[in-house]
Design a protein around this nucleic acid. Structure first.
Ligand SMILES: Cc1cc2nc3c(=O)[nH]c(=O)nc-3n(C[C@H](O)[C@H](O)[C@H](O)COP(=O)(O)OP(=O)(O)OC[C@H]3O[C@@H](n4cnc5c(N)ncnc54)[C@H](O)[C@@H]3O)c2cc1C
Length: 518
DNA sequence: ACATCGTTGGTCGT
DNA sequence: ACGACCAACGATGT
């Protein structure tokens, strides 16, 4: 919790100030409710000490799992030692939770005595100011207050509307809704244990019992809790879940390491207002709608910038108030098409996706006030506004708000070795009669009019089998594009490959003739 | 070898 | 708002 002046946003080394404040509020609230039971504060560290002491004395210690609906270990065991890797198989293996019909209470009438606390000191929960954050400047903070009381209030508000709960369908919500978010915003409370996922689950089941029909997993609200458990289970059972290297379920992809692009994204200056507004919401609120997270995660990785998902994950980890190791990593794997989901031609448009929900651009106007007077015709792509319009809106693109012509545009040109006109004819002539598959990748951002990249590969899936060597076994690498003659570095073993256009032949996998194949 | 399907794509038509 | 069409995936089951 100590301030780290070197971090890229106010906060400690690990957490942004929004989440620190949320945690402190939650602790104060917990303290108050425990004090009402005449009990002293409770420390997890103390628990661990007790546990270690007991274990070393040969006493069996029972630590019940209650943070998730199911115990990840049980699910993995039931599934034959491996975590289920699809939602459906997870749901099938999980079945009904054993505690489904025994009521869970959010109140307790008494607690055992703490007893001797040794040299532990009991102090009150500090404020953010006392922690050394007295002069942090930011004009809008997260509107969500920490604590169990607040969690239960929010939960009540959601489940009182039975109709809403019964008809909840995740993909249908509006990511630009900020006055009343389209989902429950219970994630930070679940993250910190202010709200029990099991209690939430039972409340939802109660609602379902009292309505004629209701939605089902994966889109229902119960379905959302199951997603949470799904990621916890896979994360628990997968070594190196939070990185690409050495992660059995993660596609090996040569992401770039461009800090300029990362910084543009992180600092909300890509020049795409929809993307930048979401990144501002992340910084100010520490919470965004699920689909908004999709848009920026897709844009950073497979959609446009091709920056490593681990970099985006780190930024989310720090700035989200609900950041959760298993869920955050799981969703970054998903969005970057590294695992779970692979339809990488489904790309969120930084222009039309937002427009669909918010044609007037109110969301952008709120989080990027510099664009608040930009007419709605241009607000999603302000660089197309005539100078007279920009002047009137008091926002000159390139001066008051970035034009996507800096790092972001450069990146887009880099990854699009565009072959047009004469150059293209030459390439085509060269390929005449050769059994070469031509892939047109629409890899650039939406809104650019350029021709797609032309990439030649014998591998229709662009998977290259790398022979490995030097302690590294054979492995597959996914290349989103390949350029003839240019060295490509293997992201796993750092060997270089050069793609050559060679004669007829097929992929060296036994299908077809691969005699002349390199 | 082939069909099926997976929580949430874009575009264009009605 | 909804459906057709586009179309570069991969795990799974037959
Ligand atoms: C790139 C990316 C990173 C994410 N990082 C996090 C994170 O660090 N912490 C986090 O809690 N969620 C994360 N999510 C998942 C999801 O976006 C949030 O859980 C959700 O938006 C929280 O809002 P809510 O509580 O209103 O959700 P609701 O729709 O009301 O869902 C209720 C609860 O279900 C769980 N849930 C919902 N969606 C998911 C999901 N896709 N995966 C797992 N659990 C889910 C959450 O605990 C949530 O509070 C991430 C999503 C993406 C795309």
């Amino acid at each position: 919790m100590e301030p780290d002046p070197k971090a890229f946003s106010p906060g400690s080394t690990r957490a942004g100030i929004n989440r620190i404040r949320f945690l402190l509020e939650s602790l104060v609230d917990l303290d108050l409710s425990l004090k009402s039971l005449a009990r002293d504060p409770y420390y997890q560290a103390l628990d661990i000490k007790v546990k270690d002491y007991a274990s070393s004395a040969g006493i069996e210690v029972f630590s019940p799992v209650s943070h998730t609906l199911f115990n990840p270990e049980d699910i993995i065991q039931k599934n034959g030692g491996k975590p289920p890797l699809s939602y459906q198989s997870f749901v099938k293996v999980a079945g009904q939770p054993s505690w489904a019909s025994s009521p869970i209470s959010t109140t307790i009438s008494s607690l055992p005595c703490v007893g001797e606390i040794g040299s532990c000191e009991i102090s009150k929960v500090p404020t953010v100011e006392e922690l050394g954050y007295e002069d942090v400047e930011q004009y809008e903070w997260t509107p969500f207050r920490g604590g169990e009381s607040e969690a239960l209030k929010r939960l009540r508000e959601s489940i009182n509307n039975k109709e809403w709960v019964a008809n909840f369908e995740k993909p249908k919500g509006d990511p630009s809704a900020i006055v009343k978010p389209a989902t429950t915003v219970l994630s930070p409370y679940l993250k910190f244990g202010c709200l029990s996922s099991r209690y939430f689950y039972q409340c939802l089941q109660d609602v379902y019992k009292n309505v004629r029909k209701h939605t089902s997993p994966p889109v229902s609200l119960v379905g959302q809790l199951l997603w949470r458990d799904f990621f916890y289970t896979v994360a628990f059972g997968t070594p190196n879940f939070d990185q690409m290297r050495g992660n059995r379920i993660c596609k090996q992809i040569p992401w770039n390491d461009d800090n300029e692009l990362l910084a543009a994204w992180r600092e909300a200056r890509t020049g795409y207002p929809w993307i930048d507004a979401i990144m501002v919401q992340l910084r100010k609120w520490g919470w965004m709608h699920h689909l908004a997270r999709h848009c920026v995660a897709c844009f950073l990785t497979r959609g446009d910038l091709f920056v490593h998902w681990e970099k985006g994950r780190d930024v989310f980890e720090r700035l989200l108030i609900d950041s959760d190791w298993a869920i955050n990593n799981g969703n970054w794997l998903w969005l970057s098409c590294s695992s779970f989901f692979y339809q990488y031609n489904r790309i969120y448009s930084p222009l039309s996706f937002g427009k669909k929900y918010d044609p007037n651009g109110n969301y952008i106007r709120h989080f990027l006030p510099v664009l608040k007077d930009m007419p709605k015709e241009y607000i999603y792509e302000p660089w197309t506004a005539p100078l007279s319009v920009q002047t009137k809106a008091k926002c000159i693109i390139g001066r008051d708000y970035p034009k996507p012509d800096g790092a972001v545009k450069k990146r887009i040109e880099d990854v699009m070795p565009i072959a047009t006109g004469h150059e293209r004819e030459e390439l085509e002539a060269e390929l005449q009669g050769k059994d070469v598959l031509e892939i047109n990748h629409p890899v650039g951002p939406f809104g650019t009019k350029e021709a797609p990249a032309v990439v030649k590969s014998y591998y229709d899936k662009r998977i290259v089998g790398c022979p490995g060597g030097e302690g590294e076994d054979e492995h597959d690498v996914v290349w989103f594009w390949l350029e003839k003659g240019k060295p490509h570095e293997c992201p796993v073993c750092s060997q270089y490959f050069v793609l050559e256009v060679v004669g007829p032949g097929g992929p060296p996998d036994g299908h077809g003739d691969d005699e002349d194949h390199h």
